[in-house]
Write a protein that binds this DNA or RNA. Structure first.
Lengths: 347, 347
DNA sequence: GTGAAAGCGCTAACAA
DNA sequence: TTGTTAGCGCTTTCAC
């Protein structure tokens, strides 16, 4: 627990602290000095104090990934992708929780003068204050999500509207005529965009008649409740449940199962994000891959690029979605083939 | 992006930097000074530089949770519990990845002189170097896991051996006679302890005949492979698959399903950790709740307690397990009741 | 190649 | 109550 400073190392090695610092950092120093200082540091168990070092250097070599809900596997997947890029560039990644909208603004503000050189943030709700805080932040911020047009901020977006089109096209091709959309909270960015995407996608198919409901959170439990309530409420049952994300989709899957409905024969179910959970349910959950890992990778590269060139103009990158079709939407005849494919992927 | 320091705030407010600091930190200062300084800080968008503040104060108000595999939901659950305690005590929690054994030692060393006042760590493998690094760390470290007896380190343990007893007792009561243990890597602490626990639990039931295999990772894919290989290898099939954690258990569940086995009629399956995934599969996965959230909570309290009283002697806390019984182990007759219970929990 | 010394931004002891 | 000043541990001129 004893805190040994560079002063002690220098004294131990019989050199000045300047020489000790140079030797430790691989700068100009005689072989003998380097050897003596290294030996002293090792013997004393010296590790440089990061706060002092950072105060002097004006950088920390740490980057933050700030996320609202680490319980959602899609963020875990993103974090993995970010971590790989960040480690490659010799930064350490730390994860912090954003909490609600107010605390997110507070976080950007405080983290900006804190222990990180840059921030990647996945905000659930984007307020004007948040945009202002991001633009005013003393360190670069990259946003995973969607900002008001004209924001001068590096941004990586998913195309959830296009994702909804993939879902509806697929369901229509499978003969579904009455899709029900189970959204998450509409005051969130994903909630707003996915609802708009659903409506646009349905409108493109004249034969469809859709219904909509809202889960009060992007969770399995909320999805379950919303689906039960939906079936209870409607006169004519939907033949497909289109969930705003995988967690809601899994809740809907359970609800349909508990109501004695066969999936996909009686009702198809889809999710969005294509998290590992989508492959874990039986039947597997058809889901839109919004490119979480790719978005994380790009976001990390944008951040590191901006750190190298702070004055560079803001970039906006959009990642294209794709559809991962599993058993929850495809006819019984095709299920064996899909099962075999999944098994191969898992094995 | 302009970095405004307390010097500028002081000048703007027409007071000394000492007065500015006092006003900002709520120490003695006249109402007028406070008002002027607050106004100046607000106008300039001043936020105190954490690195400078920490260098001076000798603390950061940040704690780290270091974990090997954030993809495992059990760590996510722990983190949630830790975060609540930590936030309550006005610390910020950051999450960092430990990586392999060597980099874990390196992490403890560097993080100790880094941007945190204390560390909670969940090491997968405990080496002598790691114990030494923890004992020598300049900040308090709390270990979630098991250390060699006599280590003077705050520790929170699960009782996975007792957990195995719960599983085997349950399976035996359900009439299973030939359990197969699917372990994770044996050179990890959980792998070693769970294997020992399985053997002891089986030995307590003279009528049982067990077999064992090893998945090469604590993941769904590895569990799937191990289960397929197991059924391929044995002459007489097991009537229960006892997995070392939920992820392996889910892989085993899929494998059994893909082999055309009915669960639980042909083969029962159990997991361990009782993560949210155990409730997501159909049939639901019977799993041992090792008290992840409780362990996280206790670990955070231990760390905060030690920060308040650094010389306190080391504590070791053990959290008792319980069994969450789901459809993967109970007879068809009992399944409806369990299904209803799960539905209630989800709704 | 090396040492003395300045200074990163902040807080706190001290003096006024 | 306020201002002056030292100093947290480090890196980096600058002079030698």
């Amino acid at each position: 627990m004893a805190r040994v400073t560079i002063t002690e190392v220098a004294r131990h090695a019989g050199v000045s602290i300047a020489s000790a610092s140079r030797a430790l950092n691989g700068l100009v120093a005689s072989a003998e000095t380097v050897q003596k200082v290294r030996a002293a540091a090792l013997e004393l168990g010296y590790v440089a104090d990061d706060t002092a070092r950072s105060l002097k250097l004006g950088r920390t070599n740490q980057l933050a990934y700030a996320v609202a809900d680490i319980g959602n596997p899609v963020y875990v997947e993103m974090m993995g992708a970010i971590e790989r890029v960040v480690a490659e560039a010799d930064y350490r990644l730390v994860l912090t929780k954003t909490g609600d909208a107010d605390s997110t603004v507070e976080l950007v503000r405080s983290l900006g003068r804190g222990f990180v050189d840059g921030i990647i943030i996945s905000p659930l709700r984007v307020t004007d204050e948040l945009v202002a805080a991001i633009e005013a932040a003393p360190v670069p911020v990259v946003v995973l999500g969607r900002l008001p047009a004209g924001s001068k901020v590096d941004t990586v977006m998913a195309d959830s509207a296009q994702g909804m089109t993939l879902v509806i096209d697929h369901l229509a091709a499978e003969g579904r005529r009455r899709p029900a959309f189970i959204n998450g909270p509409v005051d969130t960015t994903p909630g707003r965009l996915r609802l708009a995407g659903f409506r646009a996608a349905v409108a493109a198919h004249p034969g469809l008649s859709s219904i909509e409901t809202v889960a009060d959170d992007f969770t399995i439990a909320a999805g379950y409740r919303a689906a039960i309530e939906l079936f209870d409420r409607v006169d004519v049952a939907p033949d497909a449940l289109v969930a705003a994300n995988d967690l809601i989709g899994i809740g809907a899957l359970h609800a349909a199962d508990d109501l004695g409905l066969r999936i996909p024969e009686d009702v198809a179910v889809t999710g969005m994000d294509d998290t590992e959970l989508a492959g874990v349910t039986r039947p597997g959950l058809t889901s839109v891959d919004l490119g979480a890992a790719e978005r994380g990778r790009v976001a990390a590269q944008l951040l590191i690029g901006r750190l190298a060139e702070p004055s560079r103009s803001a970039h906006t990158v959009s990642v294209a979605p794709s559809l991962s079709i599993r058993e929850s939407t495809i006819g019984a005849a095709a299920r064996n083939a899909a099962g075999a494919r999944d098994a191969e992927a898992a094995g």
